[in-house]
């Protein structure tokens, strides 16, 4: 996957101009830039730093502090396995193990075809439907390990 800053430059500039008018623009800009490009590689971070008059190190410090930001590309579908307390005691680690087997990747990695990324997340507030898995913005509740393969197949 090669990165091209030019691919969404106009949108990026627009959103930076919009956020710059408000205070504390960095985190909202990073959110939207990640939405546009999928991830936050160095070239993009340095561009944002330059446009917001911030040191590059500050931007990188913020990106690496917040779990939501990623400097590596992710797959088309983000498979998030909740390991909040309720999901943990209701056995979501078994689902995580199964997903890891099915996809052949560890948490934090993406499949070679960039179809899926596997992630562990901390409580997505679906405790009453534990154990829960969130793929992109859809929720799968009360998941059992045997259902994992079928759930994955719903995402191309």
């Amino acid at each position: 996957m090669s990165f091209s800053l030019a691919s969404h430059l106009q949108e990026l500039d627009d959103l930076i101009d919009r956020e710059k008018a408000r205070g504390g623009a960095l985190i909202p800009v990073l959110h939207q830039a990640q939405e546009l490009y999928g991830y936050l590689p160095r070239e993009l971070q340095d561009y944002i730093a330059d446009r917001l008059d911030l040191p590059q190190s500050t931007v990188y410090g913020v990106v690496t502090f917040y779990a939501f930001f990623t400097t590596r590309p992710r797959g088309r579908h983000r498979v998030g396995v909740c390991l909040g307390t309720a999901c943990y005691v209701r056995g979501n680690t078994k689902n995580l193990e199964r997903l890891s087997q099915e996809l052949g990747v560890c948490p934090g990695e993406s499949t070679p075809d960039w179809r899926y990324s596997l992630e562990v997340c901390r409580c997505i507030g679906l405790c009453s439907q534990a154990p829960a898995i969130m793929i992109d913005k859809s929720v799968h509740s009360k998941v059992q390990p045997d259902q994992v393969a079928e759930i994955l197949s719903q995402y191309e």
């Binding site: 205070g23 504390g24 960095l26 985190i27 917040y66 779990a67 939501f68």
Partner: peptide, 23 residues
């Protein structure tokens, strides 16, 4: 303001730093 995945931002002074665009 949308958080970015840091539990510690529930602490009020950390939350304020986060709104200001910092760690």
């Amino acid at each position: 303001r949308i958080g970015a995945g840091a539990f510690v931002c529930g602490e009020e002074t950390a939350l304020i730093d986060s709104i200001e665009g910092r760690r």
